[in-house]
Design a binder for these strands. Structure first.
Lengths: 229, 229
DNA sequence: AGTTGAAATTTGATATATCAAGCTGTGAAA
DNA sequence: TTTCACAGCTTGATATATCAAATTTCAACT
């Protein structure tokens, strides 16, 4: 059906992307205070680069919503509990749409791959191999993104990848969560395999919301205003 | 309850933002072919600026998903019917979450403002004042965004503002659509006023999807793969 | 005819220099 | 004590110069 790819194309990452990733990771893992000022020259000096790639990275962080820039004033970190909650809401919204699209567009090969992931997760769950579980978790979601054929949505989602990873690490540390998470993943896979778009969407939404709320409570001791009915 | 704002803060828009807006508008309204290459020096020369602000604008467009940059190769426009469909899906996902949050967080003053918008829309609808209707439409959605207290989601959504505007212009040109759109807006406002979060979310989602599909069909003669059940 | 490879050229990536807006602090005038 | 003006400094915005990767061209070779 499709030609086997012998070699992956080479992608060099530019200095800008490197800076972008580095800053993003630092902000999300809390190494910058909220509203901390980011001095272009000082940061560039710290990183040992010129201001040009740094400025570009700041612009990317800005559109991602992690940095706010006031003209001729400076750039400031923007990250707090409310923002983390919004990132969870955004993730729930986007992932659920992609799950719905995956139920519509997935190839049989992609569905088979998801089934494989589920089986590997079942094994990792029993062995309590958390690192492996996190890895499989990300493969599973990636496969769904792939299957959705949603390039644009994926890119939007991508800005949150670091945050999603942090959330997974937190949530999967807890045994009860691991068991529930696995059951949810299996249900999502089955809904996609059955081409049940609405069910896939609903389940994914529920899955992300539950994991997200757990993460918020654990890390920020933050409970969303009130539970939805 | 809240202090009346006497003066709006002054916001100078930088050259970068100007370039960003200009290019975004040009791409979405189709003045660049899909996959057209964007030559940094040539574009900078055309705009009469240096490459620095242009590069920054390109980075913003890149995270917004309208431009794709391959390191040491160049930047290319990314916009086609499938992407337009995905933008519609993203809008539906994000706007519906904001509607849900608005039902939770809106102040009485914000709800009153929305009611005002609805009444003004009713008048504009009867007079078939399309320009006014488009304007009110945008005020109405903005008020919901405000009421949701979702800064981050708003920012994500903001990358699509131009596209949303284009969609409104297309859709509201049609009388049947105007009438339906108005009814949907009124229902959304009522759901938010009643603090019915789930209903507000569902209605907003439906509203955006219907308008989006109409727009796709009109502009791209593009029907999404198949209607959802 | 097809392939190869090195020179020429294009172009994005990066560095550096310059400009101008905003902040700070001092001191004099009211 | 308060106000205000101005100088000096900081810093983001912008322009320009330099570097190096990628593409193209075209002739030599098989």
């Amino acid at each position: 059906m499709s030609i086997v790819r012998r070699l992956e194309p080479i992608h060099l990452k530019s200095l800008r992307d490197h800076v972008h990733d580095t800053l993003r990771e630092a902000i999300i893992s809390g190494r910058f205070r909220t509203d901390e000022k980011l001095n272009e020259r000082q940061l560039a000096a710290e990183l040992g680069i010129s201001t040009t790639p740094l400025k570009e990275a700041l612009r990317q962080l800005e559109t991602e919503g992690l940095v706010r820039t006031e003209a001729r004033r400076g750039s400031y970190v923007t990250f707090n509990a409310r923002q983390a909650e919004e990132m969870m809401l955004a993730r729930a919204a986007l992932e659920s749409v992609m799950a719905q699209q995956a139920a519509r567009h997935a190839t049989d090969a992609q569905i088979a791959l998801m089934k494989t992931h589920i089986e590997q997760m079942r094994a990792a769950l029993q062995e309590a191999d958390i690192a492996r579980l996190i890895e499989l978790n990300e493969y599973f979601h990636d496969t769904i993104h792939d299957a959705s054929s949603c390039e644009y949505l994926r890119r939007l989602q991508n800005g949150q990848r670091m945050y999603d990873h942090a959330a997974r690490v937190t949530v999967l540390a807890d045994e009860t969560e691991r068991v529930r998470s696995f059951a949810e993943h299996e249900a999502i896979m089955l809904a996609i395999a059955e081409r049940n778009e609405d069910e896939a969407e609903r389940l994914m939404r529920e899955h992300v919301m539950l994991a997200g709320e757990k993460h918020l409570i654990t890390v920020f001791s933050y409970t969303p205003a009130e539970k939805r009915k």
